[in-house]
């Protein structure tokens, strides 16, 4: 099992010491063209979580490949590249470009569910199918739990050639200024993350593991060893940290220490977990 960051929740080039607490680094989503992102304000705290509407700010494919990727490689960490776009060919072209630097990439995560940009016209399965023909690199489809039957989406992307699933992306939410009652984010809505998201994420991981048995990166409100154990019990093969990294850059180091003293075999020997977890590498 690997402990990763959720895409968009860490800049490994600005905070390499934090990245090195991970078993692999997941990049911010890369789109074909550079994006400055949404107008500020872009974040707002909620009662038990936070909203973000960053809007896929990124340097674009060309600059990422020429400048950022070589510097990330120096971290010596397995790199997961998050890929985004606005139609299937956007995704497929970036996947093809990443295949040319194959030795440097552990996996591609297809961001099929960003709540802060207009959605791609193509379905998740169509995008995965287009990417499958473009690369032999492992493809993880990042899905939203907003779909009424996320297991059905998981089956469709599995059928289209996905090697794994990343669950879940943020859920669209709204937070109002308590004085003006105007949305706190300039975009209006944003993606909800943090502790509020955890039960939603656990359900999605459980449902999609049952539907596909694909390897799953579980994420959504993970901040403690117990959260990691819960994700694994629901079927996650790997676990990612997002909002918890904002509150504590050393969260993964702390959780790793907490996990070092637990025995997964003991925990799951009599549990009703849907899967036997892999051995945790401390």
């Amino acid at each position: 099992m690997s402990l990763l960051n959720a895409s968009g929740c860490l800049d490994a080039l600005v905070a390499p010491e934090v990245a090195k607490t991970l078993d692999g680094f997941v990049t911010k989503t890369i789109t074909p063209l550079p994006r400055e992102g949404n107008a500020p304000p872009r974040i707002a705290e909620t009662a038990h979580g936070m909203l973000n509407a960053i809007g896929l700010a990124n340097p674009g494919r060309e600059r990422f490949l020429a400048d950022h990727l070589p510097r990330m490689r120096e971290l010596g960490l397995p790199l997961w590249i998050s890929v985004g776009g606005f139609c299937a060919s956007d995704y497929a072209e970036t996947c093809a470009a990443l295949s040319d630097v194959q030795g440097e990439v552990e996996a591609i995560e297809l961001n099929l569910s960003c709540p802060n940009v207009d959605e791609a016209a193509d379905s998740a399965a169509e995008i995965v199918a287009a990417c499958r023909t473009a690369t032999s690199l492992p493809l993880f489809a990042k899905l939203s739990a907003a779909h009424p039957d996320v297991g059905e989406v998981a089956r469709a992307v599995a059928h289209a050639g996905a090697d794994g699933l990343s669950l879940v992306n943020t859920l669209r939410g709204l937070q109002l200024d308590r004085v003006t009652h105007a949305p706190m984010l300039a975009r209006g809505s944003g993606g909800l993350s943090g502790p509020s998201l955890k039960p939603v994420a656990l359900h999605a991981v459980h449902a999609c593991y049952a539907a596909t048995h694909l390897p799953i990166v579980g994420m959504g409100g993970v901040a403690s060893a117990q959260d990691v154990i819960d994700m694994v019990a629901c079927g996650a093969a790997h676990v990612a940290f997002g909002t918890a990294l904002f509150a504590d850059p050393y969260a993964v180091k702390r959780v790793r220490e907490e996990l070092a003293v637990v025995s997964f075999d003991d925990i799951f020997a009599s549990a009703h977990a849907v899967t036997k977890p892999r051995v945790f590498a401390a």
Binding site: G8, C9, L10, D11, V14, A15, V18, K28, G37, P40, P41, R42, I43, A44, E45, M50, N52, I54, A57, T243, L245, F246, A247, P249
Partner: peptide
Amino acid sequence: APMACGYGACYGCA
């Protein structure tokens, strides 16, 4: 600006 992380991780304080 509203800030989630303070160390360049979240891109929220742009």
